[in-house]
Nucleic acid binder design. Sequence first.
DNA 1: TACTGACTAGAACAAAATTCTAGAATGATA
DNA 2: TATCATTCTAGAATTTTGTTCTAGTCAGTA
Lengths: 198, 198
Amino acid sequence: MSETGQARGKSRRESILQAALDCFTEHGIEGTTIEMIRDKSGASTGSLYHHFANKEDIASTLFLDGLHNYSEPLLKGLAACSDARDGIEIMVTSYIDWVTENPDWARFIFSARGRVIRGAAAEALKDNNRKQFMALRDWLQPHIEQGVLQPLPLDLYHALVNGPIQDYCRAWLAGRVRHSPRQHARTFANAAWRSVAV
Amino acid sequence: MSETGQARGKSRRESILQAALDCFTEHGIEGTTIEMIRDKSGASTGSLYHHFANKEDIASTLFLDGLHNYSEPLLKGLAACSDARDGIEIMVTSYIDWVTENPDWARFIFSARGRVIRGAAAEALKDNNRKQFMALRDWLQPHIEQGVLQPLPLDLYHALVNGPIQDYCRAWLAGRVRHSPRQHARTFANAAWRSVAV
DNA sequence: TACTGACTAGAACAAAATTCTAGAATGATA
DNA sequence: TATCATTCTAGAATTTTGTTCTAGTCAGTA
């Protein structure tokens, strides 16, 4: 019996993903080799390529998992909220909470975003985007109709509310700013509100 | 005499950069091989490695060139402007102008950002950031002292003013939104102003 | 003309990614 | 418990990609 044979099936897959995430955050995606992931996870080359098609596949799996982990609590929080001002606040804080609680994931997401994604992962990504898009639209609609929020295109809402936090969080994760995004949560929420409220 | 020997010196270097930019925007940085760049530019492997240390070097050269092309007009415009509201407007429009006039470059910058940058390029990048940082600080200071703009940390200014445009432009370049950022320039400028004005 | 240094070509080499083959662990079935 | 199909693992073999090396060519110049 092999020594590492213990970690079979799902757990082996998980260990590969975890090792890959560690390597990616430390050396960047391009900077990590399959060998690094293999050695760090304790898997063999064959095992690795049994679970994933290639390095790209590992990266996009992680990317989608990360996005999903972020958007789930956001959508849940939004669905449970009927006040416009509170909703904007939830969008801001749930983003900031996720980044500050999962800095490794967030760092990875920022670095992986913008890469060309192909195949099944691209479809899954579109799906994820569409789901988030529709949830946001459904939540906004009544507030816009009631004249509480401005009738802007949806993408503009995303830009105005998420844009500033994204930019600041990216800088924070890169170590370029001193204060945690949490300390500015109120500022961001206020700015977002002033941008989109009637 | 060799057939491609015509393109020597500076022009050969330029042709390599142009070919690389084309390949990078089409296939992503990871997706393009040295071979692609070599063939597209008409250079030989040796020539390519004479002008650049490696693929990374080509990418960071393009990255820095792109950043420089963007920040130069911005800083110039800002320096020539004394009104607070106009300055915010310039920040917004000069970003949007650059993206819409240089979509290939912008696409590349977005995809290359977040990658690990090492060595001399990292220093040059820091330098560029520092220069932009200081210019922004010098421009803001008097307006803050006069009580026209809020006394926020500099990074927050960047996030509030640039964040939304960045997010929207990224979506536009990816073909995810219909309207050009230009059509929303006023909205972005207004939102930015409301975010940072006293 | 002969010399210099920047530049180029393409073969040789090294490193990394991916495939392949043989076999071990696991769980279902008789 | 024996056997069988399936999933999974190991590591060697192969392919692809990146980088270096060597022998030059070319343009300018003394």
